[in-house]
Amino acid sequence: MTVQRQKGAPGAFRGFAELFGECLPHTEYTGIGSGYPSLSGAKLSVAGQDVSLRHNSLGLNRHTRALKLSYQDRSYTYTATGYAKPSQLVRDGVQITVGPGSTGSPRDRGVRTGYAVGTVDAVDLALALIFEVVDTSTLTLGGALVSAPFTLMRPHPRNGGYE
């Protein structure tokens, strides 16, 4: 499995992340941002099919700020709690938690660990893993507070504003 993340070209303000592997569906994510892909203006596809994304970056708690995903007949909720803390992808009967790995050695930097509960398939794993290389800070309390003034200046669901 390989997850690649690229910063957008200077002046392009669009980041890109891609996940592919022998047993995982090809997954692509793009989002507006000054570097790595963010939730603003996001587009996500799994195996060539679009995934619907929506979130409320002005939500007052983690659950109202959570990212809602729809893929085929499945509905997911993705929550992030903060920098260097685990994130969670949930759908009916499935829960995947991914967080920082060992922080002891510099060579382990960037290693992620996680666990899954329920009957998890390749699509579930692909969705959980792609968000590990996306800037999801607006789902956290601190990120929501920092981004709120900018969100209020562009209040449209298509570009990350309120719904």
Rank of each mutant, 00 (worst) to 15 (best):
A80Q: 00
L141M: 10
A122P: 01
Q49E: 15
K68L: 09
K43M: 07
P86D: 07
R109I: 11
T103V: 12
K68D: 05
S87I: 02
Y83R: 13
V134R: 02
D108F: 07
A17Y: 01
L44Y: 03
L60G: 14
L139S: 06
C23S: 15
F20H: 10
A66P: 01
T103S: 14
V46S: 10
R91S: 15
K68T: 10
F131A: 00
T64M: 04
G118S: 14
T97R: 14
H63N: 10
S57N: 13
L24Y: 02
S40C: 07
R107L: 15
L60I: 11
V133K: 02
T27D: 06
K43Y: 04
F13R: 02
A80S: 15
T64C: 05
I96N: 05
N56P: 00
G114W: 06
G82I: 08
A66T: 04
L139G: 09
T27I: 12
H55L: 15
A126W: 03
E22L: 13
L58I: 05
T27C: 11
G142Q: 14
A17C: 10
G15N: 04
E22W: 08
V120R: 06
R74C: 08
H55S: 15
G118R: 11
G21I: 02
V123F: 09
F131N: 00
P25E: 14
G114R: 03
L44H: 02
K85A: 11
T81E: 12
A128D: 00
S34Q: 09
A122L: 04
L19W: 02
Q49I: 12
G21D: 09
L139C: 13
T136P: 00
A80N: 06
L60V: 12
A116Y: 04
L139P: 04
V117T: 12
P106S: 09
N56F: 06
L129G: 00
L24S: 08
L145N: 12
F13N: 05
G59A: 11
L139R: 03
R112K: 07
A17K: 02
D121C: 15
A128S: 13
T140E: 13
R62I: 09
V90A: 09
S70K: 15
T140Q: 05
G110T: 02
A42H: 00
T138S: 14
D121G: 13
E132G: 09
A17I: 07
A84T: 07
L67C: 01
T119S: 14
Q95F: 01
G110E: 01
T77E: 15
T79M: 14
V146Y: 06
I32R: 03
G143P: 07
V111S: 10
K43F: 06
L89Y: 03
T151M: 05
L152T: 02
T103W: 02
T151N: 05
F150E: 10
S38H: 06
L39W: 01
P100V: 09
Y29R: 02
V146N: 04
Y115N: 13
Y78C: 05
L125A: 14
L139K: 08
G41Y: 05
D92N: 13
P86V: 05
R62C: 07
L125W: 06
Q88W: 01
R109A: 14
